[in-house]
Design a protein around this nucleic acid. Structure first.
Length: 585
RNA sequence: GUGCCCGUAGCUCAAUUGGAUAGAGCACCAGCCUUCUAAGCUGGGGGUUACAGGUUCGAUCCCUGUCGGGCAUGCCA
């Protein structure tokens, strides 16, 4: 909520144009009246294209309509000049005083400046990361984490009631593979040689977990490993273990041999990985309101219930021993299995149950942030929603393209199974949290991201993170040397701010709430990153051209109020991105 | 093969979703520190928006086709 009554100029003028439009004709409700910021100063501050939209239905020249609209426009205390331009644009020029008085609004609103009630308190859920807890997060997860966290903050600032959620895949085969992998490493520690499957988890963290189990429980979980190999085919010693069937046999054997103890190890590795993941994300400035367990959907019968619902609605059929969902009824390219021949539910089945549960929790809107490799998955999930008579429009899938790391101008390798991948933790250690968070959201999320490690590390003008932070630190430094009472700035007259640079900066500050709103509307955190860089650029330029600590007090206070406002906006914007705003650099 | 996404300056990307003369940062060239932080600033060259059509007052954006790239096409998660 904005703390003062100062208007949003776009909304203010749009309201006036609606009145004017209704005065000259009956406005079709489908017409959206939009005020756009102009690109050139000669076009004023805002422009409206309503006249061009009306040209066709009214069968009149757009310039003529523009004149009619201007004549019918109610007076505004903020408007200096209004004129028709080009093909029929209506350009609006703000009074300098309107811009100057805005500073007080910024300084009074403080950290709330940029907030709006655009979202009207609607309940919105953002589900992101949701990585399998089977190993450390890697740099691909990092981008989803950064985008999800930033988007959540932006939505909250724009007036949504945001809930951040991590879906924990704690029920599937991958968890079994990790459990098996850990136990095998544990057996190795106890000097029992068993072949380690090539397609099991190879990473060192598995060995670490095995060591932890050994330290806590010594040989308690050794049991009878010889049994482990009994069921396997004879030739494994020649070819190694590398097929899915062999791995599944090993898992089955492990369950048989360990009995009750299997659950202990399963739970141990899950807790360990989840804790590590949570820790990692927290250090990255990413936190969740809810960690939702996939297993819980099975435990409370929701998966079975969901399948029954689909069955009742006749969207399921049996073929080749498996149960299929008719997703082709909803535009998917083929039907999908929900229950396998062996009786096990697929990941898709629990995912349908999960989304049903989300709807039951009453969110007005849900956003899933998925890796771009999941795009083929959208049709079947939305199809399932339709089958359950839920509104698929309420679910927005935001696809995030992968980040590719570059070092010395070359692609840095990363893979998930070999144990050789680049982890998020390593990335943070190498470039720092701030640079990582900023770089991840610098590009539109559905665009590939080339992550230049050398650039992110460089402490120079090439690095956009430092560029923005430096602007903040510079303002802090000036205000420290001024050493005055901030209240004097809040109440200072800004009349002395009349240079083109100063007026442009004022307009830039006015743009901030609109930018946050746009970023929320379009689910586009990158708009904040671009905005901050532009604001920092204008500030640096201003800093070099103008002295702030001048002897004339009214002028000094006006300029200090301006840069203090800039600092506020830099701070607020950086916080939305999870990047710190240092006082000194 | 089919489906989705993408193609903008030498490189990496924007462009308020159909608006006015398509903008930034790198890189390259030339300048600015005795004064609030040079992690900064000022100036310069750089484009048939992959290509060909179409829709309209107006197209980087929408439609069709061609070429090029990415991803997906499991009873995996």
């Amino acid at each position: 909520m904005t703390s003062s009554a100062y208007p949003n100029f776009k909304i203010h003028f749009a309201g006036l144009f609606r009145q004017a439009g209704n005065h000259i004709t009956t406005l079709d409700t489908s017409i959206r009246i939009e005020l756009a910021r102009t690109k050139q100063a000669s076009h004023g501050d805002y422009s409206c294209n309503l006249a061009m939209q009306l040209a066709k239905p009214l069968h009149k020249n757009p310039r003529e309509i523009a004149s009619l609209l201007i004549n019918a426009l109610p007076p505004s205390p903020y408007l200096e000049k209004i004129e028709v331009a080009g093909a029929g644009f209506i350009n609006l020029f703000l009074k300098n005083s309107a811009k100057q008085q805005y500073l007080q609004h910024v300084l009074q609103s403080k950290t709330a400046f940029g907030h709006s009630d655009f979202g009207q308190g609607k309940k919105i859920q953002v589900e992101f990361v949701s990585a399998n807890p089977t190993g450390p997060l890697h740099v691909g997860h990092g981008r989803g984490a950064a985008i999800g966290a930033s988007l959540s903050s932006i939505l909250a600032a724009a007036g949504f009631n945001v809930s951040r959620e991590f879906y924990v895949n704690d029920a599937g085969r991958q968890m079994d593979i990790l459990t098996l992998s850990t136990w095998l490493r544990y057996l190795e520690l106890n000097n029992i040689r068993v072949p380690f499957p090539e397609n099991a988890y190879q990473g060192n963290y598995v060995k670490t977990m095995a060591q932890l189990i050994q330290q806590a429980h010594d040989q308690r979980y050794v049991h009878q490993p010889a049994l482990l190999l009994e069921d396997l085919s004879e030739n494994i010693h020649e070819t190694g273990i590398n097929t899915d069937e062999q791995l599944d046999q090993l898992i089955a054997s492990a369950k048989k041999i360990l009995g009750q103890d299997y659950a202990y190890i399963h739970n141990f590795v899950l807790t360990e990985q989840l804790g590590d993941c949570r820790n990692d994300l927290m250090e990255f400035g990413v936190e969740f309101d809810t960690w939702f367990s996939e297993q819980s959907l099975f435990d409370n019968g929701l998966v079975a219930h969901t399948i029954q619902l689909l069955e009742k609605k006749h969207y399921l059929y049996l073929q080749d021993g498996a149960v299929w969902f008719r997703s082709t009824d909803f535009g998917d390219e083929k039907d999908r299995v929900v229950q396998r021949e062996n009786g096990q539910f697929t990941y898709f089945a629990s995912d349908i149950a999960y989304h049903l549960n989300k709807f039951e929790r009453g969110f007005d809107q849900m956003i899933n942030i998925w890796g771009a490799d999941h795009h083929g998955y959208i049709a079947r999930v939305k199809g399932a929603l339709q089958a359950l008579e839920l509104d698929p429009e309420k679910l927005e899938i935001a696809l995030v393209q992968f980040a590719v790391l570059y070092r010395d101008g070359k692609k840095a390798p990363m893979s998930t199974r070999s144990g050789e991948f680049v982890t998020l933790r390593e990335l943070r250690q190498e470039v720092g949290k701030d640079a990582a968070r900023f770089f991840y959201v610098m590009r539109k999320s559905d665009q590939h991201l080339d992550f230049d490690l050398d650039l992110a590390k460089s402490q120079s003008n090439e690095n956009p993170v430092y560029y923005v932070q430096y602007a903040h630190a510079r303002v802090c430094s000036v205000l420290v040397q001024w050493d005055g009472d901030m209240n004097n700035l809040v109440n200072a007259s800004a009349e002395a701010l009349s240079s083109s640079a100063e007026l442009a900066l004022l307009q830039k500050l006015i743009d901030f709430p609109d930018t946050v709103e746009m970023a929320a509307k379009e689910f586009s955190p990158h708009l904040i990153a671009f905005y901050l860089r532009e604001l920092a650029s204008e500030f640096h330029s201003y800093y070099n051209s103008t002295r702030f600590l001048v002897p004339e007090i009214p002028l000094q206070h006006a300029r200090l109020a301006l840069i203090a406002s800039i600092r506020e906006v830099l701070n607020n914007g950086l916080r939305l991105l999870g990047v710190s705003a240092p006082d000194k650099m």
